[in-house]
């Protein structure tokens, strides 16, 4: 069986692409899948620290492409999982060190040995983005319920359709249910109305994401209970693997005032 290549992208920076990549790659590995995560953000290497593998880097993506090492030598094994590997980005080069066809070639070499290849795309819509999307079988678009992030997601959806990689699937990250319930944040339904794309996951805002990246231990590895974001990532992984998992109920219990408000607005 040949691996499926998943590219995680967003257009806008800071919406959580690297966190999503680290957690999905790890969660897929925890399901017993053979997974390689690739950091395509050349010059701004980050997936290694979020996954806690920064101390073991010898070779990187550009070393493979330029023939200084074999593919296997640049794959760092995450010892906490049975079959999870990271190919780190080069830190001292730029996006032009790799071409879209290099990425296609690299992924084709990996396909036979893996079940999933998860690529962390850099922000933006230039060369780095095109590198990351070129080998994709499926594009995962990460956005936040915020006007600038949704606008950029719309642009990305248009671009991946133009590259015939569409339509892509959406992950809405950093949702704050309290703010949604009082009307001060776009709801997931609002975002879906606007972007008209398939929903893959909803990740609630969770302070433990920061704790997890402090420790270099993706949140999905932090035990099985207590973390709603970790749980949401595990659900996304299972959906990617073909299972039908219902979306988590993130709604806040209605208060008397919120019910009255809804009644007065005729939403009841």
């Amino acid at each position: 069986m040949s691996a499926q290549v998943l590219t995680v992208t967003s257009g806008k920076g800071g919406v959580g692409k690297t966190t999503v990549t680290a957690n999905l790659a790890t969660a897929l590995a925890m399901l017993g899948k053979r997974v390689t995560a690739i950091d395509a953000d050349i010059g701004l290497r980050n997936l290694d620290v979020v996954m806690g593998l920064e101390n073991r880097i010898v070779y990187d993506l550009v070393d493979i492409v330029e023939g200084r090492c074999r593919l296997r030598q640049a794959m760092i094994k995450d010892k906490r999982q049975p079959e999870l590997y990271l190919i780190p980005a080069a830190q001292t080069r730029d996006k032009t060190a790799v071409s879209p066809s290099d990425m296609v070639l690299l992924c084709d070499q990996l396909r036979q040995e893996m079940d999933y290849i998860v690529i962390d795309s850099p922000a933006g819509i230039e060369r780095g983005f095109r590198n990351a999307v070129a080998p994709a079988d499926k594009v995962l678009i990460v956005t936040n319920p915020e006007v600038s992030a949704v606008r950029d997601a719309d642009r990305i959806i248009g671009l991946i359709e133009a590259e015939e990689k569409g339509p892509g699937q959406l992950i809405v990250n950093r949702v704050k249910p309290q703010m949604v319930s009082r009307g001060d944040m776009l709801s997931v339904d609002d975002v879906l109305d606007i972007l008209a794309v398939e929903l893959l996951g909803v990740i609630p805002e969770d302070e433990r994401i920061l704790v997890a990246s402090n420790q270099g231990l993706p949140l999905v590895m932090h035990g099985l209970n207590g973390s709603s974001a970790g749980e949401a990532f595990r659900h996304v992984a299972r959906r990617l693997d073909g299972e039908s998992v219902p979306f988590m109920d993130l709604s806040v219990k209605p208060t008397f005032m919120s019910r009255l408000r809804a009644f007065m607005n005729g939403q009841n």
Partner: peptide
């Protein structure tokens, strides 16, 4: 009573407008 538009509704309308022009 929440009769005023919430900032979430304003965000949605502004996005729909700006995306219509973007697209």
């Amino acid at each position: 009573l929440g009769k005023n538009e919430t900032s979430g509704q304003i965000a949605k309308q502004r996005l729909q407008m700006v995306l219509t022009h973007d697209r």
